[in-house]
């Protein structure tokens, strides 16, 4: 950031602080006094972007906030750009960031000077699940069969991005079982699912929402979910199966677990009252039927956390990612 940017921001902070001292507002708790920037450290159309825009839509539809919410995509360098922007906006209460696993992986893989502790954690909205998918015409009916085949000959696993969640899972499977998997990176989850349908790769670890339609049309088959417990949704998605019928990886003898954070952060150095406002706002968002529908559709793990519990979770996850990335040789 050039010094010019800092100059402008310090003015912004000045105005924000002035609003805080004003007694009328202080009594009612803090509220945004200008449009809120919602930073998405990913491109338009991806999972994080979709979630951010759903939140934006819910907030405006149910009039949960007086000021508008403005989504800003900062996708450069696997999201590094967006995180650095938020890091540089210290004390700005009119900025929130939605994160995915690149909160941990991007700084580790690229060496960009950033850490989640440069931000203020607000809330965990949900966790995104990962499912091992194969083409329905493939001979593998269980994860164990797939792993056994991958030990015989090298199989190709498609995923989104490089040195990110999908590749971490691929490497973790290899480490845990000795299966030989070639990871092929693509740009987006939807593309990966179609490549699997077209048999250009042998398997994928798509999120449920990315692959559900191909599962329902009978083109893909889920083998296991990388969570400690089965998915909650018991409604039949195909003739025979519901999300809850997919076994966990552990049940099938594959000791790999991975969930992806969908959380909201603010820049560092903001007031507790400001954090409290966004916690309350997101709580209201989670209670809307629109949000519940999204959770249902995407078979999300709708665990949510705030405050110290969230911080503790983040600390634990960061350490885990460091281990996983180190084992995979992805650290910059």
């Amino acid at each position: 950031m050039p010094p010019a940017g800092c100059f402008r921001r310090s003015l912004l902070i000045g105005a924000g602080a002035a609003a805080l001292v004003s007694p009328a507002i202080a009594q009612k708790g803090w509220e945004p006094t200008r449009p809120v920037q919602f930073i998405v450290p990913a491109g338009t159309g991806g999972g994080a972007d979709q979630m951010a825009r759903v939140i934006q839509g819910i907030v405006s539809k149910h009039k949960l906030m007086r000021q508008p919410m403005v989504v800003v995509n900062k996708a450069g360098g696997a999201g590094a750009e967006g995180f650095l922007e938020a890091k540089g906006a210290r004390g700005n209460p009119h900025m929130i960031v939605i994160t995915l696993s690149n909160l941990f992986t991007t700084p580790m893989a690229t060496g960009v000077p950033f850490n989640w502790q440069d931000l203020t954690p607000v809330a965990m909205l949900a966790l995104d699940e990962f499912v091992l998918w194969v083409n329905a015409e493939s001979p593998w009916k269980t994860a164990a069969e797939f792993i056994a085949a991958a030990k015989q000959e090298r199989l190709k696993l498609g995923g989104t991005g490089s040195k990110q969640e999908d590749q971490i899972i691929a490497v973790a499977i290899g480490k845990a079982t000795g299966a030989q998997l070639t990871y092929v990176p693509y740009r987006g989850g939807g593309e990966v699912a179609v490549q699997l349908v077209g048999k250009h790769v042998d398997a994928s670890v798509n999120n449920p929402i990315e692959a559900v339609t191909h599962w329902r049309s009978g083109a893909l088959r889920p083998l296991c979910v990388f969570d400690s417990q089965r998915l909650a949704n018991t409604e039949k998605m195909t003739e025979t199966m519901a999300w809850s019928d997919i076994p966990t990886a552990k049940e099938t003898g594959l000791d790999v677990e991975y969930l992806m954070l969908r959380g909201i952060f603010m820049p560092a150095g903001v007031q507790p009252a400001q954090v409290a406002f966004y916690e309350g706002l997101l709580e209201k968002v989670r209670e809307t039927p629109d949000w519940r529908e999204l959770m249902q559709q995407g078979a999300f793990n709708s665990t949510s956390m705030t405050g110290d519990a969230f911080r503790a979770w983040l600390t634990k996850e960061e350490a885990r990612h460091r281990t996983l990335m180190q084992e995979a040789g992805f650290l910059a």
């Binding site: 159309g45 979709q50 559900v212 339609t213 191909h214 999204l294």
Partner: peptide, 12 residues
Amino acid sequence: GGLIMWGLQPGP
């Protein structure tokens, strides 16, 4: 993304 927001699942 819009389709998904409106509760429509694009695909086959």
